[in-house]
Design a protein around this nucleic acid. Structure first.
Lengths: 228, 228
DNA sequence: TCGTGTGAATGACTTCACAGCC
DNA sequence: GGCTGTGAAGTCATTCACACGA
């Protein structure tokens, strides 16, 4: 069937499925490590074993990026790294503003490796005057009132929210006013934004829920085993 | 068919599907907000509209928790909150140790609302002596060398890793030595652990990948539209 | 009439199975 | 033999459709 054609078309229109997108960075990191050890070739089997993923799945994911491998040889490490970068848009530098210079904001500003993903936090903003006029990890912290103007002037299209939940919407509103295109929200709150703005929530509670339930079940399991 | 019986059995053995687990905290937060405004009843339709999710999906998720609603009336807010808490294991307090008292660790220690999820970070540890003997958000920071012993004595079963990637495995090894049951890993590194230990990675790069690709595609889209 | 409960249908993702190549 | 490429099968999750109850 022409499923393949349909799928390629879908990839262009809809992009890769989210599970694939979430796995690609894992491959990316591993590949960079392999490159540092001097390796030039890699197989799906190896990647899968290393990351405890099914080899076929790895192959399908790689297929998404458009990379082709050679039987027996596998894929070229460098080529794969570049393909993933391009596919994820990590080859172009994106400059971002960060709202909320608390400890979480500070942590993100100091996160190494964002630059590898083409992300550069160029400045941070806060409502609290005491937090302003500092320099954290080489980035200036300014008062929030200056943000919108600077955003427009510097054509910043990416915003990161690290304020408390109660102030998340205000932060988002300012970013939207400044013409933001995408928001990465670390506050545990739902944000209202126009359709054109991409919002991704990094919600710790959601992750915790998965972990909690696994743990609860494991505890219950071991307890019932103890009884049996 | 007896699909329902099979499914209930599966819920016990395998737990709820991960997508469901990730949505439950969203309902939970909304429900708590509703309760504060004095609401006592709620419908799937309302939750769905508020969170921009399909109402049927919300209903299926709620079904997982074992809550039953009444036609026309909907669900009891309080009952639902309790059911979600119980289902996720958030009704029992879990005490946790945190490894890595950098800004990310600090941010997590100050994260409000973990206590609502039954999680309490009781102490933090670091290799750097300069970071020790401080008190952050009411929690003591001690030297890492003391951790394993304290873990056993206090029967801590939950560990949070907020050290740099290069030290993540060492941190994990110590937690495992201390008898940890579950690890929440914030370092961008894969951790080797025995089968019995639950490891959940909170990988910012994975989330960023999803966002990046959406943004890249949106940019490409608007550009091609501009051309057309 | 609106909302729950539920089985059936669709769709998305993963896994299997095998052909072709080195 | 090991590895890619690919279509088919299977599994899991979401969405639809409709019966029933207040």
């Amino acid at each position: 069937m022409e499923n393949s054609i349909a799928q390629v078309a879908r990839n262009i229109v809809k992009g890769a499925p989210e599970p694939t997108l979430r796995r690609l960075p894992l491959y990316y990191r591993l590949l960079k490590q392999l490159r540092e050890t001097g390796r030039t070739g890699v197989s799906c089997t190896l990647i899968g074993a290393e990351l405890r993923l099914d080899a076929t799945q790895v192959r399908k994911d790689i297929e998404m990026t458009g990379t082709v491998g050679r039987p027996k040889v596998g894929y070229d490490v460098n080529e794969l790294i570049c393909a993933i970068e391009k596919f994820l848009g990590w080859d172009n530098l994106t400059e971002a503003f960060l709202v909320g210079a608390g400890s979480l904001g500070e942590a993100l500003m100091g996160y190494p490796g964002f630059s590898e993903c083409g992300l550069s936090i160029v400045a941070a903003f806060d409502v609290d005057p005491n937090k302003c006029h500092r320099v954290i990890h080489g980035k200036h912290v300014r008062h929030i009132s200056k943000m919108t103007g600077l955003m427009r002037r510097m054509r910043i299209r990416f915003g990161i929210i690290t304020v408390p939940a109660s102030e998340a919407q205000q932060a988002a509103d300012l970013l939207i006013e400044g013409g933001v295109l995408a928001i990465w929200n670390f506050a545990p709150a739902k944000i209202q934004a126009p359709e054109r703005v991409i919002v991704t929530n990094e919600d710790l509670y959601c992750s915790l829920a998965v972990l909690s339930q696994k743990m609860t079940r494991k505890l219950a399991e071991s307890r019932s085993k103890g009884v049996a």
